[in-house]
Amino acid sequence: MEAPIHPMLIVAGVLGGVMLVAPGLIWLERRLLALWQDRYGPNRAGPFGVLVVLADTLKLFFKEDWTPPFADKKVFIVAPAIVVITALLGFVVIPFAPGFIVSDLNIGILFFLATSSMGAYSIILGGWASNNKYALLGAMRGAAQMISYEVFMGLSMMGVVLLTGSFSLQTIVNAQQDLWFVVPQFVGFVTFLIAGIAETHRLPFDIPESESEIIAGFHSEYSGMKFGMFFVGEYIGIILISSITVCLYFGGWLGPAFLPPVVWFILKTFVFIILFILLRASLPRPRYDQLMDFGWKILLPVTIINLMITAAIVLFNENSP
């Protein structure tokens, strides 16, 4: 692993990998949801129904790509692209294996936070440009949810940063050689995971979409491949949050040597992706104000207390060697 891989190769590998896995998740999610609901899910096209992904993509491509006449055209078209681009940008700082990272920024975590918050723009712009009251409601909910959960998402990661003294994800993973951070930072892990789910707008936090209340929320007016972009963007977001969680709390690529590091990383990431799907299979959506209450009144104080205790311990250890 010492010989540096050509950066373009890494870029191509990461991009190709993510773009292959994201649609595959559509299939995985349907199969798993079906499994947990005592059904089969897609099982006709191809072995175990894998080709349903292809069928779905073809269908989306051939659907009429309709822009409503009352929409703000330019913004309407740009919005779906933003969600995919920002989610993909997040992968820049993720170390898949030692040296297998697009760019080891020394502000990796901050970069990740910045890009993932940019995803909110696609929701707000998409909902706004649709010029539809349900889309706007969804966009407003998305913005409010993003603001409240973003706050302690950043704060919950700071515990890890305090323990390592670095924002670089590669350094953070290397610091977990002896002990995964999920043990000393368990509270941080739980709050980060909850915030991460809220960040990807997955059930039970799919308030901006909530198809049972406001049609499809911010993407009510979208069709064809533009809708597909939102769809894929959501799955890329799941992969991103899962891999960040693995890097921060579960030792990234670290694992017994009988498997190469990348495989460990992918395995751990998939455990979290499956957890995301299990969440969707089992939990109902809370009410909007309940969600806000939960964020501000419970999770934020818990995160801050966790951060302060971690800081105190770190200070104590430094001063009494």
Binding site: L35, W36, D38, R39, Y40, A281, S282, L283
Partner: peptide, 15 residues
């Protein structure tokens, strides 16, 4: 409830 849903993995499928 997440655990109960998970256990459904081992149930017979109704389809």
């Amino acid at each position: 409830s997440m655990w109960l849903t998970f256990l459904h993995m081992f149930h017979k499928r109704e389809t």
